[in-house]
């Protein structure tokens, strides 16, 4: 087996001054590359485990006395590795603001209504073919303190465990055409030619008529660059 160097060309830098918080938190020295560093820690495996409370339906898992407010959406896609192989059994956790752009976390000071029937957190696993799916409410934009009149575009936070330690990923999914995207330093920290990779595609085929719109978001995890040696 040969392993090529990792392709980081789609990744944001650590320091991105327009995103003010990076200035004091980004490491200043490049990460050290040590061969075999992560090989002994395989991390969460692909299959064989069951989740106690896999709740992939965020329109239900926070209900108290009714339906959550907002636009119902289905978010689904395929998880693959860099060789294009499906990643089965990946663990996904998602969290997000409600339709009004408010998180239930008390530290969120945005003066927008909480939704008593929406939690904004869920998790699921990809199936044997790498497919995953959530049902949720389209999150609203919210203001933040980065610069005057700063607003985050609509986004869903995702955390993924793939087949090994190196495939860990935390990212955010955005919606194509959001007018706030060109103004958002977190989104813009990604190299221009890779920003598309963070945009969910409207997916008419997966909409549930009369119930929910659908968006497709495919995910490529770091890893499995090893290729079989030629015979």
């Amino acid at each position: 087996m040969t392993t090529s160097e990792p392709d980081r060309s789609s990744q944001p830098p650590y320091r991105y001054p327009d995103y003010v918080s990076t200035r004091f938190r980004a490491p200043t020295l490049p990460p050290l590359r040590v061969p075999g560093f992560s090989s002994v820690h395989a991390g969460p495996a692909a299959d064989g485990s069951s989740f106690v409370s896999l709740d992939a339906d965020l329109t239900r898992n926070g209900r108290r006395n009714g339906e959550p407010v907002g636009e119902r959406i289905i978010v689904s896609g395929r998880i693959i590795d860099e060789a294009g192989r499906p990643v089965p059994g990946a663990l996904l956790e998602i969290w997000q603001a409600n339709a009004a752009g408010r998180y239930i976390q008390p530290t969120d000071q945005h003066d927008a209504p909480l939704d008593p029937n929406f939690l904004g957190a869920g998790r699921c696993r990809s199936d044997a073919t790498g497919l995953y799916g959530f049902r949720t409410i389209k999150p609203g934009a919210y203001p933040w303190q980065n610069h005057p009149n700063a607003w985050r575009p609509n986004h869903i936070h995702l955390s993924l465990f793939g087949p090994d330690f190196g495939s860990r990923l935390v990212t955010q999914m955005y919606f194509r055409g959001d007018p706030l995207l060109p103004l958002d330093p977190i989104f813009n920290s990604v190299p221009e030619d890779a920003r598309d990779l963070l945009l969910a595609q409207f997916d008419l085929d997966r909409t549930e008529p009369g119930v929910a719109l659908a968006f497709r978001f495919d995910i490529v995890l770091n890893g499995s660059r090893a290729t079989p040696r030629e015979a």
Partner: peptide, 17 residues
């Protein structure tokens, strides 16, 4: 080869999730 999905910050409000 497919390109890695870019990473993004975990943000300040991950706790409840």
């Amino acid at each position: 080869m497919p390109r890695q999905t870019p990473s993004q910050t975990i943000g300040p409000f991950f706790g409840f999730g």
